[in-house]
């Protein structure tokens, strides 16, 4: 009886999996294959005939200083913002884990930036960072931190710092959530034992807490890094295609859609895909990946 059930199940499993496989093939597999193919052609987004041009697009790409700038911007953006939000997320998670009144309120408040759509966050901050009427300039002038209003989003050096700050604000809740869940699995008696032994707060964190939350910390950092490497909407809405902040995704879309150069844009996209695939492979070998990806 058991054997026949298993056999029936295996037959049915094919039919249960087929819709998923077909859907993934249509929305992911085929389009990716086409993008890679188009990267070797002179295709235009408007359609029409295109011909194979070999590595021409890639040759142009590696000679374009704007492309290398986009690569650098992407790496700077991803590494700085993930580092900051990990530190901040861990700090906030530790506060939320402590026994304080109003913890429920605080926990709910921390989720708010996560709940706000990225485009909305981008607009909220673009308004707050406005060079003439922004509340941030106004406040900093009042406190005396700056003497003249700053053009946070137009100034080449400030723009990157600004978009990183907004990304940190928006994504720290994700870190907090993952780390808080991990912190709650830290055994209390272990902490107490360490305290009795005279271990200070920092030592207790290093010896007791950190080893327990390390897997969750690793997973959170990996997911955020892979997400940050493909950043598009926040930067596009706040500063458009400006080269000071344009990431690989922004650069690729600009060429593909604004300039209608599907072949060249696809080459840039393919390289971004390769970078992310490489990072993923690296992470998988570094530590086993067992967590589901989170919704953005």
């Amino acid at each position: 009886m058991r054997r026949s059930i298993a056999a029936q199940r295996r037959r049915d499993a094919v039919w249960f999996l087929l819709p998923l496989l077909v859907a993934l093939l249509i929305v992911a597999g085929w389009p990716l294959a086409r993008t890679i193919w188009l990267s070797f052609t002179d295709a235009s987004l408007a359609g029409g005939a295109h011909r194979f041009v070999g590595l021409e697009n890639y040759a142009f790409l590696i000679e374009d200083p704007d492309w290398w700038r986009a690569v650098r911007n992407t790496l700077v953006f991803a590494s700085v913002s993930v580092a900051l939000e990990t530190a901040l997320g861990l700090g906030i998670a530790l506060v939320l884990d402590a026994q304080i009144r109003g913890r429920g309120l605080l926990r709910a408040a921390v989720l708010v930036p996560w709940a706000i759509p990225t485009v909305v966050s981008a607009q909220l901050w673009a308004w707050m960072l406005h060079d003439q009427y922004g509340v941030i300039n106004e406040t900093l002038l009042l406190v005396g931190v700056i003497e003249a209003p700053r053009a946070w989003l137009a100034d080449r050096t400030l723009a990157m710092a600004s978009v990183i700050a907004v990304d940190v604000w928006k994504t720290t809740p994700f870190m907090v959530l993952l780390l808080l869940a991990a912190l709650q699995t830290v055994p209390v008696d272990l902490h107490e034992a360490a305290q009795v032994d005279g271990a200070g707060a920092i030592r207790r964190f290093m010896v007791v807490t950190l080893p327990v939350i390390r897997p969750a910390l690793l997973v959170a950092v990996i997911f955020r890094t892979l997400d940050a490497l493909r950043i598009f909407d926040l930067i596009y809405v706040m500063v458009g295609n400006a080269s000071a902040t344009a990431t690989m995704a922004v650069y690729a879309r600009q060429h593909m859609v604004d300039f209608q150069d599907a072949g060249y844009g696809s080459a840039a996209s393919t390289l971004l895909f390769a970078v992310i695939a490489l990072a993923t492979a690296l992470f998988i070998t570094l530590g086993r990946l067992t967590a589901p990806p989170a919704a953005r």
């Binding site: 993934l24 389009p31 086409r34 490497l229 996209s269 992310i276």
Partner: peptide, 19 residues
Amino acid sequence: VLGVSMFPQVAVLSGLFEL
């Protein structure tokens, strides 16, 4: 399936647009 979630959206953009 997990790997698909790592796809940058822009990497499938031209292929999807065509489709």
